[in-house]
Simulated assay, not measured.
Amino acid sequence: MKRILVCDDDLDILDILDYALTDSGWEVVTSFTVDDIIDKVESARPSVIIMDNWIPGVGGIEATQTIKRHPVFNKIPVIYLTANNDIETLAARAGADLSLPKPFDLDNLTRLVEKAYKLKTA
């Protein structure tokens, strides 16, 4: 089964993403913090990660950079998620592979996640 790690501090967003992605055939692991992001990734072993920009603690940029510097996990595609108007700049600074603006359309979400999964398997 395809597994995705979703990191967002908004429990409503986590619920929506969990529901939509589970409905699309994903096993969803959620987290509302990223301070121990490598432990979370190691535990979840996801094929794709969705990372919120504004998440307490180290924040989405630093958490994504930590993943992308890791020798084992750096190939896991990260989708950067934010309501910030400058999403492309933030995603690039973080080192994310793709970005998804909030609010998001569920069909666009699932298409983007599948695109990220293909990056992982390519």
Rank of each mutant, 00 (worst) to 15 (best):
M1N: 13
M1G: 12
M1R: 12
R3T: 12
L5E: 07
L5C: 02
L5D: 00
L5Q: 00
V6R: 00
V6Q: 03
C7S: 05
D9M: 01
D10Q: 08
I13D: 00
I13R: 14
L14E: 06
D15M: 08
D15L: 06
I16Y: 01
D18Q: 14
L21M: 08
L21P: 08
L21F: 01
T22H: 09
D23M: 12
D23W: 12
S24C: 15
G25V: 00
W26R: 09
W26V: 04
W26I: 02
W26E: 14
W26P: 08
W26Y: 05
E27A: 14
V28G: 10
V29N: 07
V29T: 10
V29C: 13
T30E: 08
T30G: 01
S31I: 02
S31M: 02
F32E: 14
F32V: 14
T33W: 06
T33L: 11
T33F: 09
V34L: 07
V34G: 02
D35W: 09
I37S: 05
D39V: 11
K40T: 09
V41N: 01
V41G: 03
V41W: 11
S43P: 14
S43V: 13
A44P: 12
A44I: 14
A44V: 13
R45I: 13
P46S: 08
P46T: 05
P46L: 02
V48F: 11
V48Q: 09
I49T: 03
I49C: 00
I50L: 07
I50S: 02
M51V: 12
D52I: 02
D52A: 10
N53G: 11
N53L: 14
W54D: 15
G57T: 04
G59D: 13
E62N: 05
E62I: 10
A63Q: 03
A63I: 13
T64Y: 09
T64S: 12
T64K: 10
Q65C: 15
T66L: 15
T66P: 15
T66N: 15
I67A: 08
I67E: 00
R69W: 13
R69C: 10
R69L: 15
R69M: 06
P71M: 04
P71N: 04
P71V: 04
V72N: 11
V72C: 07
N74Q: 12
K75F: 11
K75R: 13
P77N: 04
I79Y: 02
I79E: 01
Y80T: 04
Y80S: 08
L81M: 08
A83R: 11
A83Q: 03
N84Y: 15
N84D: 15
N85W: 04
D86M: 11
E88G: 13
E88P: 06
L90I: 00
A92N: 10
A94S: 07
A94V: 02
L98C: 12
L98S: 06
L100F: 01
L100Q: 00
P101F: 07
K102V: 03
K102R: 07
P103D: 06
P103A: 03
F104Q: 10
F104R: 04
D105P: 00
D105N: 00
T110M: 10
T110W: 12
L112V: 05
V113C: 14
E114N: 15
A116L: 01
L119W: 11
K120Y: 03
A122V: 07
A122W: 09
A122K: 14
